[in-house]
Amino acid sequence: MAMKEVTVTDIVYETPSIVSIYLALPDGTPIGHYVPGAHIDVEGPTAITRQYSLCGRPDGDDAYVVAVKREEASRGGSEALHTLKVGDTLKISEPRNLIGIEEEASHHILIAGGIGITPMHSMARYMDVRGISFELHYFASSEEEAAFLPILREKCPEKLHTHLGISREEQTAVLQEVVKNAPEGSHAYLCGPEGFMEKVTTILSTRFTDEEIHFENFHAAEIDESGNTAFVVELEGEEYDIPADRSIVEVLNENGAEIDTSCEEGICGTCIMSVLQGTPEHRDNVLTKGEREANETMAVCVSRTRDPKLVLDYF
């Protein structure tokens, strides 16, 4: 995916561990609008590329804003971004969405855990100024660690429900009550740590269908590759052997396929292709349960196949 150069124009500490980074075009021209809930790839100072939700005003065009939490177990991405200074340059991708607002929904339930507030912040601000029906449930360990809490309290206090420092049992009770009171026609959106999202998804599934649950997950799934086997992929009439130790996208791009990639961990959706024949073995964290069961698309950076052959096409 093509990357463009941007300049850091401002840095704001939202909490002791979360920093907002403002990114603008070097020549000062408008950077453009984006759809609420969108994210971008950011190539940091150490050349590591990670995905970050845009959390500023979707209809503003002076700068993109990403919020980055310094992670103790960081592989280098978040720690490096915390060393940035105003005037530094980075490379970013164009915005894209995994968690856009469902237009047919009559009500929207936003659920954020910790740093998962980033996409929910832009979605809440967008819906609030347009009179779209929503509620935001924000779970955080403490008020000090709750990024964007002051502005959310200022801009949409009646729609905001904060749940700070509560136990796991209390979290479950709150979420069950949210599900119980959800108006007909509601859709739910969630983002947060992996364990939190698993809990929320399980509780939501007691009432909501897979199509009514939307999520953003930037955590790569742990994959056991010990049982990998070789198989064949056909693309536009040509067949390619995929060895057990290589991915589909590696082999196809090596042979001139020009499939866009970004994370190469199954979390961004850039490399999704259409499946014309065969049964994928899905290993991504992008497709919904319904999309996986349909087997009409797959993320070719990590997923493989249960059959000897797959027939693919561009998505």
Rank of each mutant, 00 (worst) to 15 (best):
D224P: 05
A257S: 10
I223Q: 01
I259R: 08
A221D: 09
P243F: 13
V232I: 15
D224N: 15
I223A: 02
E265G: 05
A257D: 07
F231D: 05
E250F: 10
L204S: 07
S205T: 08
A220G: 14
A244L: 07
G237C: 14
E212N: 01
E264S: 09
I213S: 00
I223H: 05
L235H: 06
G227S: 15
I242E: 11
E239S: 15
A230G: 13
L252A: 03
N255H: 15
N253L: 11
R207K: 15
S226Y: 10
N255V: 11
E250P: 02
H214W: 03
I213Y: 01
I248Q: 02
A244K: 15
I259P: 08
D260N: 11
E265W: 04
G256S: 12
A220C: 06
V233C: 13
E236A: 13
G227K: 14
T206W: 04
I223L: 08
A221V: 06
T261P: 00
F231P: 08
A230M: 04
E222A: 14
A221K: 12
T209W: 00
S247P: 02
D260M: 05
D245I: 09
A244H: 09
S262Y: 05
I213F: 01
I248D: 08
N253C: 09
C263G: 07
F231T: 02
S226C: 10
N255W: 06
D245R: 04
C263E: 08
E236Y: 07
S205F: 06
N217K: 10
D260Y: 01
F218K: 05
T229I: 05
H214K: 14
N255L: 04
I248N: 02
E236W: 02
N228C: 03
E222Y: 12
I242C: 13
E250G: 13
E239V: 08
N253A: 10
E254P: 02
H214N: 14
S226E: 15
D224L: 11
P243H: 12
L235Q: 02
H219P: 00
H219A: 11
A257W: 11
S226G: 11
V249Q: 03
E216Q: 10
I242H: 14
N255S: 08
D210H: 04
A244D: 13
A230L: 05
I242V: 13
S247E: 03
F215S: 07
C263V: 05
T229P: 03
N217E: 04
